[in-house]
Design a protein around this nucleic acid. Sequence first.
DNA 1: CTGAAAGCGCTAACAC
DNA 2: GTGTTAGCGCTTTCAG
Lengths: 344, 344
Amino acid sequence: MPVTIRDVARVTGVHVSTVSRTFSAPHQVNAETRHRVLAAAEELGYRPNRAARALITGRTHNIGLIVADIANPFFPPLIKAAESHARGRDYHVFVADTNEDASVEEELVLALAKQVDGILLCSPRMSNAQIEKLSRDVPLVIVNRPVPGLPAVVMDVGQGARLAVEHLVALGHHDIALLGGPRGSWTNREIRKSATLAARSLGAELTIFGPNPPTEDGGAAQLDAVLQAGVTAVLAYNDLMAVGLIDALDHHGVKVPDQISIVGIDDTALSRRTRPTLTTVATPTAAAGRAAVDMLLQHGDDRRTTALVTLQTELVIRDSSGPGPHSPAGPGGRLQPPHDGVAS
Amino acid sequence: MPVTIRDVARVTGVHVSTVSRTFSAPHQVNAETRHRVLAAAEELGYRPNRAARALITGRTHNIGLIVADIANPFFPPLIKAAESHARGRDYHVFVADTNEDASVEEELVLALAKQVDGILLCSPRMSNAQIEKLSRDVPLVIVNRPVPGLPAVVMDVGQGARLAVEHLVALGHHDIALLGGPRGSWTNREIRKSATLAARSLGAELTIFGPNPPTEDGGAAQLDAVLQAGVTAVLAYNDLMAVGLIDALDHHGVKVPDQISIVGIDDTALSRRTRPTLTTVATPTAAAGRAAVDMLLQHGDDRRTTALVTLQTELVIRDSSGPGPHSPAGPGGRLQPPHDGVAS
DNA sequence: CTGAAAGCGCTAACAC
DNA sequence: GTGTTAGCGCTTTCAG
């Protein structure tokens, strides 16, 4: 049923190796022969079997992309950027979802290993040691975590967290909560570290809650803790958690940003959808996807080039952050009017 | 570098076929030999090469999943459901994104064809003829479109559209607009057909705008057309377009649902995020993903079983739909209070 | 420029 | 129960 190189050879009256060359090294074959082969292939509906080819060349022209959760709006832009970038270089991208589970992650890497030329491992939950071990089976590029000795692309969320804290303190907030993300996340550690440092140097008080699942429910679940802590501002591990908390606060009758300010991280499409719109740290996800593909592909050429690419982040101020009790504009005052906020 | 079956055989002192059997038919090999082989394999870090295995067995234990746009919140729940369902049956899912482009779609099917045991083609933009042709290269299950002779799973959006129109008419709307979706979409045709029929039988006036790209921008772009048409209610091809239109109306100072009612389709996570929250038709996407996997896997066993699975939809009434000019509760009246709506 | 032969990593009869 | 032999679809020396 499936038409092979042999069928084309028989029909054309040439040897299989000639047919093979027609596809893998066209210029090495006589123009006329080539046309006959191509015509026969076309007619028979022949398609080279990439898997069989890979068995011998060692290159599949596929790359794997493993993410923790496809439904997290953080990932789709990264995935799409990686895909279109890879397609332009004649590579296909296979995406797989781990459900935030480290063991599924390992299983997927192993399963993909022989079917791809390399894997983009995004926001891994495994330990560095596990990752290093896996990297002996298949070229890996890590996204959202620096792993010593391996190529990685990270976004400078530490800087983003610092900007967020500075923003809140400038608005007059003194007691700030940080909603931590999942255990095992480098991003999470980075955010905690930077936020703590920034708060200390600005004389603000930072209370950390977590670890938490990086979801809306994870954010909502910290409602009571946040209220009891008596903070006037919250920085969340990501937009999803920020959104979950905003909803929970809303149901509880607490006004954002009037009674409490909320800042997210990621600047997903969601952040323009919330009510009020979300102040958040923008992470360059599309650029990260493209950079990771580039590193993987060049990594193949020169295995000794292990680099760390760091992408900058920036603070996007929207309506979920407002003046705090120590506002220079006076209590309840406003440094900047909301674009679209709830009128007071 | 990569350790093969042969290395294991050499170390263990048995023939390669024994090693092979240890992995593909363990009970056919002596328990003690098996343990020795397994131990050696473990020690060497041997992993069966699935691609090589597939070359001879014809089964890759992979399934492909092609969607139009990963960033469309309609798809992630379907993808995740398909993935976890497949994993439970020892299959891996490779996801690819076509960017709503029919030619990319074809290319991806062909590229995936030999690396998977079958493909779940979601919301295809290709013609039926193209799809049938491709189905000769690889088993296909179509999602969101019935293709004669091929297994497919669809959601009854026609019924959903009818429910939506009935809902709007019951609220007192008479002039309704339908924002059509993309050309080539079966779902779009179905919605148009059912909405038209429902409107006619209820004595309402339905104006159709489109085709449109199924995105927020696509919805926003129809703002002027909708306003000029003087309709009091709009049914959109999907939630994304509905949301885009709601935003555009908001910027234009038009109140939803007071001045115009909006109904979406899909019940994505987005629909609880809009302001006001979105009345929409819920489509069982997770169930569709699982059903499609089941069909693909059983389809392999019995090629003659080509079936069409139709999943029911239902109307979820939220706050973006309100009484129209012919409301039984009187003009401007309210049949049901909003859960969370804008106070008038 | 083209044919012959070997072999990628693995499985599947078939013997022993 | 295990070794032998062939071969999946393709590329790649090496001759000619």
